[in-house]
Computed example of a mutant assay.
Amino acid sequence: MERRSFLRASVVGTGAVAFSGSLWQGAASAAPAQLAPGPYGALQAADANGIQLPSGFTSSIVARSSQTVPGTSYTWHGAPDGGACFADGTGWIYVSNSELGSGAGGVSMLKFNSSGQVTAASRILSNTSRNCAGGTTPWNTWLSGEETSTGYMWETYPFGGTGVARPAMGRFTHEAAAADPVRKVIYLTEDVSDSCLYRFIPTTWGNLSSGTLQALKAGTGTSGSFTWGTVSDPDGSPTATRNQVSGAKRFNGGEGCHYANDTLWFTTKGDNRVWQLNLANSTYELAYDDNLVNPGPAPLTGVDNITGSSSGDLFVAEDGGNMEIALITPDDKISVFLRINGQSSSEITGPAFSPAGNRLYFSSQRGTSGSSSGGITYCVTGPFRS
């Protein structure tokens, strides 16, 4: 098969991380990623935080659930999940969802100065349930999805403002979101075993209060062409949104998604896959499948949150597995970037790069205790390639 052609991406300093170029596109078909040595070398022995990293990288803890964030008076939320970074002058902000249920969820933020020190922390969304994943917008808001059958996508404001539900984006078991500024749409994943992949077309780009919700239509294979069909009733009652579009393609547990350069990547945890939508030519294919790694063993299981670096590498976190973040390069090679030891009852969530691309933030949702009150949010620094 032909291989993907690609150019490295660049980071655009407009708040959230954005990309330009022609990353991972070109060939009509490509083999899913195969196991190979990582670009940073082998993992070293676990550090004081129990994290194995390549040589030259270090980890630190920036917040712990149920404890006051150092340097602030704010108590960090339980069950930290999806996250993202926003540029803030010479510093940045990291937002983090809370996957607590029964109205105890929401979103918190950490504000960092140019040295990477926390200078403030606060709550930016409260009284919601099971805020799992989400995504940034080009206008510097954070979309936080409720992982319940009647869940909303909430638009929140890291720089100040009251979060608001966006019912036009559908009521379903929301997971992640990814903004496509070229087509002026927001892609949305759904965490059920027969999920759809959606896109929301705002009536006015930059305003998510109204628009059209659509579901991807395609065959049953792992590659081919796709179209979109309109969801007539985004409220999802009495008919669930995923059952309103004839010919909608089903996915086994939609999780994270990431957009860059006319391409959308999204993960499905039920079958340990990373999917790739080539938006310029309306085709799809597999970027990773744990059953197609040959020779094995497959380095990535429990496929969950996903993000990208300025080099075009994809970083995919595990919910379970070996508590690893795997790295997929633009030339279809997969390796393990880091591993957390001693936290087998947890999952890795919220991977996101600082605007400069030299810090990777993420959480262990239940930490060493296995309880939502024991979450730990980390930062890894080092020579990430650009």
Rank of each mutant, 00 (worst) to 15 (best):
E2N: 12
S386D: 06
L7V: 12
V245Q: 04
W228H: 03
L277N: 06
R4W: 13
A356Y: 02
S335H: 08
G151V: 14
R166E: 11
D271Q: 11
G229F: 09
Y152E: 13
N358S: 15
F337H: 08
G224P: 10
A48S: 15
T189G: 07
V11T: 12
I124Y: 04
L327K: 13
R250L: 13
D233T: 13
P295F: 04
G296P: 12
F86N: 01
T329I: 02
A79F: 08
E146I: 06
W205E: 04
Q25K: 15
T212L: 08
S309F: 07
S60D: 12
A168W: 04
R8S: 12
L143Q: 10
I186L: 14
D191N: 15
S73R: 08
F112R: 03
N341Y: 00
P37Y: 04
G134K: 01
G56F: 02
N243R: 05
Q44P: 01
I334K: 01
I334P: 03
A33K: 01
Q25S: 14
T156R: 02
Y198D: 05
E175W: 12
A168T: 04
F6L: 09
E155R: 10
S115N: 14
I186C: 00
F57G: 02
A46I: 02
K333E: 10
R242G: 00
F266W: 03
W154E: 05
I340K: 10
R359Q: 15
T137E: 09
I325Y: 05
V231Q: 04
R273C: 06
S59K: 01
G82H: 02
S108M: 13
S115F: 10
G370H: 12
G296R: 03
F159Y: 15
G103P: 07
N281I: 14
R130S: 15
A168F: 03
G116A: 07
S126T: 15
D194L: 10
P32D: 07
Y361W: 14
K249G: 00
G103D: 09
N127T: 14
G270W: 03
P383Q: 11
N261G: 13
G21T: 02
L300H: 11
E2C: 07
D331N: 15
Y40H: 13
E146P: 11
V17A: 15
G151E: 10
V380G: 06
G135M: 06
G105Q: 06
N358T: 15
D304A: 11
V118W: 03
A178K: 04
G224H: 08
Y94S: 02
Y288C: 08
G50W: 05
R166L: 11
A280K: 14
L292Q: 14
L143T: 10
N272T: 04
V107N: 05
N272R: 04
W142D: 00
G15F: 06
G56E: 07
A176N: 12
V185W: 09
W92R: 00
P138N: 10
L125D: 06
G83H: 03
F226S: 06
G89Q: 05
S65M: 02
F362D: 06
V303F: 07
F159R: 08
L7M: 13
V192S: 11
D194N: 14
P297M: 02
G26S: 08
P158I: 08
G296W: 00
R273V: 03
G15D: 09
E318T: 12
T212F: 05
K217E: 05
H258P: 00
F172V: 01
F172Y: 15
V12F: 09
S246L: 11
R273P: 00
Q67M: 10
E255Q: 12
N294C: 02
Q244T: 07
